[in-house]
Nucleic acid binder design. Structure first.
Lengths: 154, 154
DNA sequence: GCCCATTTGTTCGTATGTATA
DNA sequence: TTATACATACGAACAAATGGG
């Protein structure tokens, strides 16, 4: 029932194949050895080999196509990523909510933009009036820094 | 291989038992019929019965205790609810991630504040120069809107 | 404590159906 | 047609755990 490692025979094959998939020795899209090859390789019965492959199939790691072979469908890492527990997701939601709150708070302080834009408009009007009172239009000395018609909309 | 319904034999038993669990005929904690009883009940081979129970075990609906029986562990509704909640939480996480991204983007555009402040400083300098060329200092008419000595630091 | 029946789980072997090449 | 391979089905046996005598 169990080998030297104390594990069941089919679980030994399962762990072997799973390790090979995880290590990249068997990549997604590759085909795992056929039942006959695994049987010859391990020296176990067909039942054990089939059972092992069936476990991998139930885990979603492989998927068999009758008449062709059993193909690697995903890596254990992929499944691990999918099997995010509810608590982890809940924690993520809480963290993200906090982050959204903080960002929204900082954005709300963005009324500075409105006030600054209003101030810019006022100052431009003042400058224009002053130039009119001086009798000549805008000179060139401050055209490089205070660029005309800057985009003010978001 | 298949019965009159076109389904495999073991899947027929799986569906039957799953329906019984879903309908409440088999409640959580109850034990399902033993392999021998199911074998006599359906007239199928032991292999088919074992396969059916194994599927239910892989689905997490039942859990067997060697020497005793196979006990109902959860209902299909439970698993569905768990799956749905995970999907829902995943969606929330995705939505919140988008929101965080958008807010962060808008905040990153906060360089507008810096540019606006620079422009304000430039314009103030221009206004001051113009007033000097006019020969008299700041009047009162624009002191209400363009407030003097506004804090420019964050 | 010991034996025995029951039950699950694992292992063995074989046969058949179906799909692909 | 032939061959290979997966999936299903059949039958049998053994180990381990449980419970009853």
């Amino acid at each position: 029932m169990t080998d030297a490692t104390g594990r069941t025979l089919y679980l030994q094959i399962v762990n072997d194949l799973r390790s090979q998939i995880a290590s990249g020795k068997l990549k997604v899209g590759d085909e795992i050895p056929s039942t006959a090859k695994l049987k010859a390789q391990y020296g176990y019965s067909v039942t054990v080999v089939r059972k092992a492959v069936e476990v991998l199939r139930n885990e979603g790691l492989v998927m068999g196509q009758p008449g062709k072979a059993v193909y690697v469908q995903a890596t254990p890492k992929d499944l691990e990523a999918e099997r995010v527990s509810i608590v982890d997701l809940t924690r993520q939601v809480a963290d993200l909510r906090r982050e959204v709150h903080d960002l929204a708070q900082r954005l709300e302080d963005g009324h500075q933009i409105k006030e600054l834009m209003a101030e810019v408009a006022e100052l431009r009007g003042t400058v224009e009036q002053l130039y009119n009172r001086l009798g000549h239009p805008y000179p060139n000395d401050n055209a490089d820094s205070a660029k005309p018609r800057r985009k003010t909309g978001t």
